[in-house]
Simulated scan of single mutants.
Amino acid sequence: MRSQAEAILAMDFVETVTLAVQRQYIFAAVHHASRRVWIVGTTAHPTHAWITQAVCNLLMGLEDTGYVARITFLIRDRDGKYPALIDEILGGAGIATILTGVRMPRMNAIMERWVKSLRGELLDRTLIWNEAHLPHALREYERHYNEHRTHRSLAAAAPFRARLQPLGPDRIERLAVLRQDRLGGVLHEYRHTA
């Protein structure tokens, strides 16, 4: 799996409920090797037309960032929300769709782990007011996840940030750390000051 991670993208829906008691579906994708996340969109009604457009938007974003040339497989579950048309769209871009087995979440383990992170770090700790507030919170979380949050699989680096070099004894003595809060203190980011 590790040798093929560069060619694999995974996608899934995450369900949440706002304080206005409206069910929202978050559509997201994660690249296995880089752990980069794309939150494709949110909707209360994931119709086939909406999902097809969201997949087209994801493909355009992948082309813009150069990922589409590296991806040859997309892992997704057998959810009835996915229209058959998206497999054709992905196939036209050279991406083969691999469906997970029935009740086998480990077949899409990296995406499922990201869902757990999203729930534990954001959705379970934030009161999402309505459908307008959810995309704002998700954009902040996506930025935090891709630019700041460290990953074991990346040797304590973030998808958009290289691994920090260890500090020498001379720098540890005058170490100063700056904390920046995101989303009203739900997310914390730390960095060394100069």
Rank of each mutant, 00 (worst) to 15 (best):
P83V: 11
A44M: 12
R125H: 14
E112P: 01
R106P: 00
Y141V: 04
V115D: 02
H31S: 02
A20R: 13
I128Y: 10
S34R: 01
G91H: 15
W129D: 13
R78K: 13
I110D: 05
L62P: 04
A84E: 14
Y67G: 02
G120I: 00
G91C: 13
I86V: 15
A84I: 12
Y141T: 07
H45S: 13
A54L: 05
T52F: 10
P46K: 11
S34I: 00
I128W: 07
G101V: 02
K81Q: 14
E121A: 08
P135N: 06
T18Y: 12
W38T: 02
T47S: 15
N108Q: 06
A84C: 04
G41I: 09
R70P: 01
E63L: 03
H48T: 11
P46T: 06
A109D: 09
G120E: 05
A49S: 08
L74A: 12
R70V: 03
Q24P: 04
L59S: 10
A84D: 14
G41N: 11
V102Q: 11
D79F: 09
A28K: 03
D79C: 12
V21S: 15
F27C: 10
H31Y: 03
R78G: 15
Y141R: 06
G66R: 08
D124A: 13
I128F: 09
I51Q: 08
T52M: 10
T126A: 12
A69D: 15
I95L: 04
R78H: 08
L62H: 06
T72Y: 07
F73L: 14
D77F: 07
A33V: 05
L118D: 04
G41P: 11
T100Q: 02
